[in-house]
Amino acid sequence: MQYEGVLTKMQTEFGNPIQYYLVFEDSFLNVNQMVGKELTIDFIGYQCLNCQKKKKIYRQGFCYDCFYSSAAVGDWIMRPELSTAHLGIADRDLEYEQKVQLQPHIVYLAFSSEVKVGVTRKTQVPTRWIDQGANEAITIVEVPNRYLAGITEVALKNHYADKTNWRKMLTNDIEHVDLITERLKLEALIPDEVREYFILDKNDLYQMDYPVIDYPTKVKSLNLDKTPSFQGKLMGVKGQYLIFEDNTVFNIRGSEGYIVRVTI
């Protein structure tokens, strides 16, 4: 069977295990059903996720021009503390930024490679945690806008990592940490203007189970620009990565905007 189209991050459903879907313009496939099977990935070309033109991808599925002009990739995406929509101040497009920034946001602890702090919109729970390959995650605060979430994350980054070590996450070489106990330590670290939103006794620990037959002992990353055709046996899916038998891992999200043909 063959599937062809532009890569976008895999869609997911929370379950036991997590269900993954590759969605193309005219078709989709349940990636869980591919685990244990041989598949071939062929690189065909590029298509910017924003302007739809067949232009080389620069970052995050966008061509160079769109990356530096689209409101969807402003600096406040990666650095929520830079959000200004709550002040009525635009970065690139105030209407878009108000729509995204002025809604409930979560600051959380997640455990994937080590305990990390992060920010996401409430509507992205638990999708955000699945996408980063977290084994467990728990909410610290729920605030009404992205700015308050951002300043909370900044305060906690002095005590916790804010990025996932993707190699450790994929090898699953990690020691368990009790996130409920960890959350109890945090109240004094949270900024005063966010203290009222602190979640102390809510039992909302999420645990994620991924469709993986066998974790790799080390990982090597597949880059379609350097290796335009790859064949291997799929051993699992975690985060937004496909894991193959020969220790190759393929970051679907990191290859958004690439046009591929997948043959099973």
Rank of each mutant, 00 (worst) to 15 (best):
M169G: 01
L156R: 02
Y160G: 01
N165R: 03
F230L: 13
N158A: 10
I174R: 06
E193V: 09
D201I: 07
Q207C: 14
R195H: 12
P211R: 01
D201M: 12
R195N: 12
K202N: 09
S221F: 12
T217C: 13
P216T: 01
I199S: 06
V212Q: 04
I190D: 03
D209G: 07
L186F: 02
L186C: 03
K220M: 05
N172F: 03
D178H: 02
D162A: 11
L189H: 07
D173Y: 08
H176L: 11
N172Y: 05
S221E: 15
A188E: 15
F198L: 09
V219Q: 01
S229Y: 02
L184K: 09
T227M: 15
D192C: 13
V212Y: 04
L186V: 04
I180H: 11
K168L: 13
V219I: 12
A161H: 10
I199R: 07
V177T: 11
I180D: 08
F198Q: 07
I213Q: 14
K226G: 05
T181V: 15
W166T: 00
P211Q: 08
T181A: 15
D192R: 15
Y160L: 06
I180F: 10
S221K: 10
Y160S: 04
R183V: 00
L179M: 06
N158H: 08
K220F: 04
L205V: 05
Y160T: 01
L222I: 12
M208Q: 07
Y210D: 02
L184Q: 13
H159Y: 09
K218R: 14
N172K: 05
L205P: 08
S229I: 04
L156W: 00
K218I: 06
N223Q: 08
V219A: 03
Y160R: 02
I174C: 06
D225P: 14
F198I: 04
D214G: 07
K218C: 10
V212A: 02
W166S: 01
D201H: 13
E182N: 07
S221I: 11
I190T: 04
K163Q: 08
L224D: 00
A161G: 13
L170V: 02
P211C: 09
N203W: 05
L186R: 00
T164E: 03
V177R: 10
L186D: 00
T217G: 08
D192G: 15
L170T: 00
I199W: 04
K202C: 06
L200G: 06
N165H: 05
V219R: 01
E196A: 11
L179P: 01
Y206W: 03
H159R: 14
K163F: 09
L184T: 13
N165F: 03
I174P: 02
L156Y: 00
L205N: 07
K185T: 13
E182H: 04
K220T: 05
R183Q: 04
L224W: 00
L205H: 04
D173R: 09
D162F: 12
R183Y: 02
R195K: 12
